[in-house]
Design a protein around this nucleic acid. Structure first.
Lengths: 144, 144
DNA sequence: CATAAGCGTGATATAACATAACAGCCTCGG
DNA sequence: CCGAGGCTGTTATGTTATATCACGCTTATG
C-alpha cells in the first residue's frame, strides 16, 4: 500500500512521509470517515502510539488535499480523488454514515462564494449535506 | 400579539424554560459565537454550574431554531432572527471570529439541496464560509 | 391525602476530541 | 565538528460532549 508513486497527471506530487502513508492507507482501506482515535487504534500495529502523531499526519494530509475533515462529525476521510483543490462538499447519510464526496463545478464554487456578504471576503467553503441514503430510507422516519 | 394558535407567521411560540432563557440571553448579549464552556463560565452567576445543563439547553434551543452551532468551530450562536427554519449559512472571519448569518433564498436552498447525489436524499445543509472581514483584511496575509 | 407520572433540573463521572511543549534522531551544508 | 531543519516519539494537559442517576415540583387520579 505504498502510494509514493501514484500515477502522474492531475494531482501534484504527493511526497508523503512514512507516517502520512500509513495513515492515508488506513483511511483509504476504510473508505469511510474515521475519528482520529479510531485511526490511532488501527495503526498501533504500525508503531504509531500517540494522538499527536496521528493529528500531525492528518493535518499534513489535509494541507495536501488528500484527506478531508467532516466538521459535522469530527471525522476524517480520504479524498476520493487522490487529492483535490479544496473546493468540495459532502453528502452524509445520517443513519449509516455513508459519505459521498461532491465535486463542485466552477460555477457551483462561484455561486457558493458569492453567498458571502460584502463585508467578508470568502476564502474557504465548508458544505455538508445530511440526509438519508437509498438503503436507509425505507427503515427510517424523518426527524426534522 | 399572542398567536399561540398554530405556528402562524415566521416564528413558532418560544416557551422557554428558565435555563434556556438564561443561556439564550447570554448568547444574545455576546452577539458572537461562544463555546459551551464559555457560556458555562458566563452563567455561573445565574446558578448554572455543570456542562450537561448547558448542553441540554443548547440542544433544546437548537431544536427550536433559536441557536445554531458553528460546526467548523464547535461554537454556538444565537439566531440573528429570533428563530429560523434551519436553512441558513454563516460567513466567519478567520481573524476576528466575526460571524454574519446568511439567509438563503428559496432558490439558494434549492440549488444547495440539488448538489446532493441521487443516492442520498438531502434533509439538512451545513454551509460555513470562512474568509477575512473588512477590518481584518489590511493586517492579515492569506494562508491558503 | 397518597401516589404515581412527567418534566426540568442538579450533580458526578467519564468519554471523546485535540494540542502544547519538549526531547531524540536523522541528514545536510558549512 | 557543529548547527539548522525535518520528522518522529512522548508526556501531559486542555477542550468538547455525554451517560447516568438523583432530586424536587406540578398535575392527574382515586
Amino acid at each position: 500500500m505504498n502510494a509514493t508513486h501514484h500515477h502522474s497527471g492531475k494531482h501534484p506530487a504527493p511526497k508523503l512521509s512514512p507516517n502520512q502513508s500509513k495513515i492515508l492507507g488506513c483511511l483509504r482501506e476504510a473508505g469511510e470517515p474515521m475519528s482520529a482515535y479510531a485511526i490511532l487504534d488501527h495503526v498501533r500495529n504500525d508503531g504509531i502510539a500517540h494522538p499527536p502523531t496521528v493529528y500531525r499526519a492528518l493535518n499534513d494530509l489535509m494541507k495536501k488535499g488528500m484527506v478531508h475533515r467532516l466538521e459535522s462529525r469530527s471525522a476524517f476521510i480520504a479524498c476520493g480523488d487522490g487529492a483535490c483543490d479544496g473546493r468540495f462538499a459532502f453528502a452524509i447519510c445520517r443513519a449509516c454514515d455513508k459519505v459521498v464526496e461532491i465535486h463542485l463545478s466552477k460555477g457551483d464554487q462561484t455561486r457558493l462564494l458569492g453567498l458571502a456578504p460584502a463585508e467578508i471576503v470568502p476564502e474557504q467553503v465548508t458544505l455538508e449535506i445530511t440526509g438519508l441514503c437509498e438503503a436507509c430510507a425505507p427503515v427510517q422516519a424523518a426527524p426534522v
